[in-house]
Amino acid sequence: MNPTPATAEIPGYLAGTWKADPVHSQIAFSVRLLVIGKTRGRFAAHDITLITDEDPLRSSVTATIDLASIDTGNEKRDNHLRAADCLDVDKCPTMSYRSTGIRQSGDVWAVDGDLTLHGVTRQVPLTLKVKGFSSDQRGGQRAGFSATAEINRRDFGIDTGGVALSNKVSISLEIQAVLQR
């Protein structure tokens, strides 16, 4: 493979199909509460597939997140977030993301894609950092990625929380993926 300008900047870049290692990956969020603090949480169960193309700009990602796996460290709050007036996990058990394109501007990568949450689909770009590619202790290959995004919960029909809870929700992903053979 002759490296493209984009792959030349990513040491060890490998084309292939990758699955996120659930033990070494995290999907987290934070939302401002009462203007003075933040509530943080994560989704413990997810299925993420990344396809890295010979040309990184033709790569793609799909993700499905189990909304019932929400964990904020407070069982009462988690149960409220799962309820019908918030995430409504009985009716909408998952959130999904499907990339529609990848862009690069200097050192900054962006993944364009569609996020479906609470039965509503909106375009949500991710700011991406490629952490690298390397061999693991078992002879396999691993890749690391970080991504961030911000959504407005009301864009997805989630209006609970009143004025105490910010509309903006920050999302961060730390993904360690394993090359599939």
Rank of each mutant, 00 (worst) to 15 (best):
D78M: 08
L50D: 14
R58Y: 07
L165Y: 04
E174Q: 13
V120P: 04
R58D: 09
T100F: 01
T72M: 02
R138M: 12
E9Y: 00
T17G: 07
L87H: 02
A143H: 11
L67T: 05
A20D: 12
L128T: 04
K131G: 13
R154D: 08
M95H: 02
L67M: 07
R77H: 12
C92V: 10
S59A: 09
V163W: 01
G16V: 00
R32S: 12
M1E: 12
D55M: 03
K131E: 09
Q123L: 06
T116M: 05
L50H: 10
R32I: 08
R103G: 12
D66Y: 05
I65P: 06
H118D: 01
Y97P: 05
G12S: 08
I158Y: 04
P3N: 09
Q137P: 06
L87T: 00
L81F: 00
I175E: 05
V178R: 06
A110R: 15
R142H: 11
G37Y: 00
P5W: 02
D136I: 06
V169P: 03
L117W: 05
T39I: 11
L34F: 14
D78H: 11
V61I: 15
G101H: 05
V31Q: 01
G16A: 02
A15F: 03
R142P: 07
V111A: 15
K38V: 07
I10G: 04
G157E: 02
A44P: 03
D47L: 08
V89P: 07
E150N: 04
L33G: 02
S96K: 07
I51P: 07
A63T: 03
F43G: 01
D78W: 10
L57Q: 09
L67R: 00
Q141V: 04
Q137F: 09
G106E: 09
T121Y: 05
N152D: 15
S96R: 06
G106F: 07
D85S: 11
D66S: 05
A45W: 00
F29Y: 05
V23R: 15
P5Y: 04
P125Q: 02
A15T: 09
D112G: 14
I27L: 15
R58M: 11
S105K: 13
H46R: 08
D66G: 08
H118G: 00
R82A: 03
R154E: 13
E54P: 05
R153H: 07
Q123N: 08
